[in-house]
């Protein structure tokens, strides 16, 4: 039984808006999604070798959201996220080697092996912080936005959160505060309908998350999270609102994760969601639908796509090699940075 059907309309009617975009941008969006997919699949393929001693939360199926939203941010804008960090980190421009070293618990990991896959950070790329506590990064992003605003910066702060985070009181509190202070902030809620193996219906009354958010006084929209152009467009509007002093925005992106909540592989067969539901969403795989759309409009062809896959595979192979050759921490490393001077 399909509990949460795809209700979007794909790229129907997007031809004109596509034509208005620079072709280089159109293909960069495809390339960035493919890169994340390839990295995630390689992590997944190697996960059982137990070299990466870290929990993983793959974004396979959710790449359009990572790439589309980050495409509207500059490198200087600040991004925060929850436990499902890989897509946000990579799309924001986080260093791949730093990520894989972190996942291999090496001292040169992006967080010096104190973080693991849930705490990927790259401040040079504006990937500013994460939390493994559901909803935990949301008020922190608001604090970042408050700081930007008080210091007169034109940068914005954005945060990725899951549907379950909207059940945490702190997210309601933060929407209230962000609206009150007109913070330059964007809440990107990736609604994949499940919290671990619990469907939305056992957790919330039937309602639209973006309407719930709007009740807090925050401008809210819903977008098709499988459509990278729709994600980007919604993000651009939100960023424009934030930069021009119009306050925060909440974007509900409806999408689906193709893998288990955590770890490698899918776990639908355990029965919490129907394989049929997964298969339906796989027909709107964000990379394939976008590529098909681009090729229909002669903006990409198989050869270009294959080259994107090849380049990503080479990059990821090199990064794995680098990570595996990197040094482990020493005992003295445990005791540093408990306090700041």
């Amino acid at each position: 039984m399909i509990r949460y059907a795809y209700q979007g309309t794909g790229f129907e009617g997007w031809e004109e808006r596509l034509q208005a975009l620079p072709p280089a941008l159109c293909s960069a969006l495809l390339r960035d999604m493919i890169r994340i997919r390839v990295i995630e699949e390689e992590i997944e393929r190697r996960y059982h070798q137990d070299q990466m001693k870290t929990p993983i939360h793959l974004v396979i199926g959710q790449e359009a959201s990572s790439v589309g939203f980050c495409a509207a941010l500059t490198r200087e804008d600040l991004l925060y996220s929850g436990h499902r960090t890989h897509g946000a980190y990579l799309a924001k421009g986080g260093d791949l080697r730093g990520m894989l070293c972190e996942m291999h618990c090496r001292i040169n990991g992006c967080a010096g092996s104190r973080g693991g896959s849930m705490h990927l950070i790259d401040k040079r790329a504006g990937m500013a912080g994460t939390s493994a506590i559901v909803g935990g990064a949301v008020p922190i992003a608001a604090g970042a936005a408050l700081s930007l605003k008080l210091r007169g910066s034109d940068r914005v702060a954005a945060v990725f959160l899951g549907d379950a985070a909207t059940e945490e009181g702190v997210v309601s509190e933060t929407l209230n505060f962000a609206a009150l202070k007109r913070l330059p902030m964007i809440f990107v809620c990736e609604n994949n309908f499940y919290s671990v193996q619990s469907p939305l219906a056992t957790r919330q009354p039937a309602r639209d998350l973006h309407r719930w958010a709007a009740e807090h006084g925050v401008a809210s929209v819903q977008v098709d999270g499988t459509n990278v152009l729709a994600a980007r467009e919604a993000a651009l509007a939100a960023v424009e609102r934030a930069r021009s002093g119009g306050g925060p925005s909440f974007i509900e992106a409806r999408l689906y994760r193709f893998r288990a909540h955590g770890g490698a592989g899918d776990d639908s067969k355990t029965g919490y969601r129907d394989l049929e539901e997964l298969h339906q969403w796989e027909t709107v795989d964000p990379i394939r639908t976008y590529f098909d759309f681009l090729s229909r409009t002669q903006l990409a062809d198989d050869r270009q796509r294959d080259a994107m896959y090849q380049a990503a595979m080479k990059e990821v192979a090199d990064a794995f090699e680098f990570a595996l050759a990197s040094p482990n921490p020493e005992q003295k490393d445990l005791y540093t940075h408990v306090y700041s001077d």
Binding site: G136, P139, L146
Partner: peptide, 12 residues
């Protein structure tokens, strides 16, 4: 949330 806002502001 305000404790989190302070944390995020202090981080920035």
């Amino acid at each position: 949330s305000i404790m989190g806002v302070c944390t995020g502001a202090a981080m920035n």
